[in-house]
Design a binder for these strands. Structure first.
Length: 554
RNA sequence: GCGCCAGUAGCUCAGGUGGACAGAGCAACGGCCUUCUAAGCCGUAGGUCAGGGGUUCGAGUCCCUUCUGGCGCGCCA
């Protein structure tokens, strides 16, 4: 929508410069914005305000010069006005919108997709929760955000891989093993002391019972150390399967699950520490080995190897990120809980120390989710083990509403999730509001079939019959979609797509209520079908980017 | 103590990289169905953008500072 106008403006400035009427030879980036106020036209430029200083003339005078050189050969503009402090306001001619609607129709299902990613390899790592228990709402937000980002980047021409890093080694798994073993023994009628900081959730009992059912009591013969290892592996595997199921319930599919244990076993961690050492950023102190992250602006040095000789979590994570670079990803995006924000500088420091470009690593931080029900906050205590699981949410409100609600906010802002609202089947519930707009169009088409008008008739519809203001405004909204997708991808902000969809759905519902689509004038009806078909397509594409279904009936 | 993030209408939140008089949606009140889904639409209201300073033609947006809230600052992961 902006491109043709940008070209016109650029031409105008060039001519003015040649004619000696503008001093500037290098234009600032042309900024065309969609004004909030409809009276300010379809697009507005602040070019004259930006240039005023270097031109040593007041903005309106500069604007006048630019406008005088505009050459609208194709007649896409209906009006050009200089307004306010020196804005140039453009209004497109109906013919422009009609042509645009045709373009959208021709683009078909690819509408909104772009190639700005140029096939660049991008890896998104998200969730990566330890397989030591069920996922909760916080994980759900990270999961949905990561997946939506992946879809967004894929839609903009990136080559995307989704990855889940499985922390299947280290203390947490050992603790899970000890906890599960204790529950197993309990079931076998044997007393094995429950570990001090063990996992007390009921799910550990269920996992123990599952292992008992599978293996019988024979595991009681293992010595306690062996048993803990066995149970850590077995319980971790069972819980990881449950996590995969949870992801599937949210329509999320990972390309790779990367095992921390495997990284360790393959020597990647040791090799990474050796590389850091070779670069001169490792030293020994207090019996441990440290990474000198302070050399890169971190506020403390970080341990890589504990006194006991064990690798730290950090060491393994550095090795993992090093492997991502080695795998050839041009962009590496991590979705982390906001409580991990402190890890960003040290991870980037480690990459830099390894001679890797830290700018290729981007971290999207996801803030906490608070649940409300009946207007009251749902209390969640991590200690008590009383948290609402991801599965419970999905079972209660459905995958579509879960995804939509978790994507409604900027990821680094805290989010309130109203469970009652998410379940409501009314206009108050934004996900239904948007899906209903899609279904309504489908319903119009069902009614149209009865009168002999079908999708083909819509395709053949004559856009020049669309002369109402709200019809042109609807095209304008649809025309913004590719730019919204691009902006969302560029800024890694899926919530922009959500807001766009709510606005588009609103425009459509208003139009629907005001305008009879299937009137007596068949030609007009066909034109209107063309319009709403493309509204529907745009909604479907937008929902697709969010991983949400676009139903034909509600 | 140091660092990061936030503070916008009664509530939940937007404010495409500094632009025009600050925007939605809830909640409240009043209207609209012999016609394609009323699971919808229309109308009415609300603000010292936490406070204070600064940068500039112009600040919710950038800088400094104070206050308030969240989170980090482990040889935990």
């Amino acid at each position: 929508m902006k491109k043709p106008l940008e070209a016109l403006l650029r031409d105008a400035c060039e001519r003015a410069t040649k004619g000696g009427e503008l001093l500037t030879t290098t234009l600032p980036p042309l900024l065309l914005t969609v004004p909030k106020e409809p009276e300010h036209g379809d697009l507005a430029s602040n070019l004259a305000l930006v240039l005023a200083r270097s031109e040593r003339r007041p903005p309106p005078a500069v604007a006048e010069t630019i406008v005088r050189h505009l050459d609208d050969r194709d007649g896409i503009l209906a009006s050009v006005e200089i307004a306010g402090p020196g804005f140039i306001n453009f209004r497109f001619a109906p013919a422009y919108w009609w042509a645009l609607l045709r373009d959208v129709e021709v683009a078909g299902e690819a509408y909104g997709r772009s190639a700005i990613g140029a096939g660049r390899k991008v890896q998104l790592e998200f969730v990566s929760a330890n397989p030591t228990g069920p996922l909760h709402v916080g994980h759900a937000r990270g999961a949905v955000t990561g997946d939506a980002l992946a879809r967004l980047l894929a839609a903009t021409g990136h080559d995307v891989a989704r990855e889940y890093y499985v922390n299947d080694a280290g203390n947490q798994i050992a603790m899970l093993g000890a906890s599960t073993y204790a529950r197993y023994a309990e079931r076998c009628g044997r007393a094995v002391p429950f570990p001090e900081d063990g996992y007390r959730g009921d799910y550990v009992r269920e996992v123990a019972a599952a292992i008992l059912a599978r293996e019988g009591e024979r595991l009681m013969q293992l010595d306690p150390a062996e048993a803990s290892t066995y149970f850590g592996d077995a319980a971790g595997a069972i819980l990881l399967d449950a996590i995969r199921d949870d992801m599937a319930a949210l329509a999320i599919d990972f390309d790779h699950y990367v095992s921390e244990r495997r990284l360790r076993a393959e020597g990647a961690v040791a090799a990474t520490i050796a590389a850091l050492e070779k670069a001169g950023y490792v030293y020994e102190a207090d019996g441990a080995r440290w990474f000198r992250s302070t050399a890169f602006g971190d506020d403390k040095d970080r341990p890589l190897v504990k006194t006991g000789g064990e690798f730290t979590y950090f060491a393994a994570d550095v090795a993992y990120h090093r492997a991502k670079y080695a795998a050839g990803y041009e962009r590496i995006i991590d979705v982390w809980g906001a409580d991990h924000h402190g890890h960003v500088p040290r991870m980037k420091a480690a990459m830099q120390a390894l001679g890797l470009d830290p700018a290729r690593l981007e971290v999207v931080l996801v803030q906490i989710v608070s649940l409300t029900r009946h207007g009251e906050p749902v209390r969640m205590g991590k200690r008590s083990g009383e948290f609402v699981t991801l599965r419970e949410i999905v079972d209660e409100v459905g995958a579509d509403a879960t995804r939509f609600f978790l994507l409604m906010r900027k990821s680094d802002a805290q989010l309130e999730f109203d469970l009652d609202l998410a379940k409501e089947r009314s206009a108050e519930n934004p996900v239904f509001y948007v899906q209903y707009a899609h279904a309504r169009v489908a319903s119009v088409f069902r009614a149209a079939e009865a009168t002999g008008l079908d999708r083909a008739a819509a395709t053949a519809g004559d856009p020049t019959r669309l002369t109402e203001d709200d019809e042109l405004a609807l095209i304008r909204r649809v025309a913004q979609f590719p730019e919204v997708v691009e902006g969302a991808a560029l800024e890694l902000e899926p919530h922009r797509v959500v807001f766009f969809l709510m606005e588009l759905a609103g425009d459509f519902h208003r139009y629907y209520n005001r305008t009879r689509i299937l009137g007596d004038d068949r030609e007009l009806a066909a034109a209107r079908l063309l319009l709403v078909a493309n509204v529907q397509k745009t909604i479907r594409a937008g929902l697709g980017i969010l991983g949400i279904a676009a139903p034909d009936t509600m």
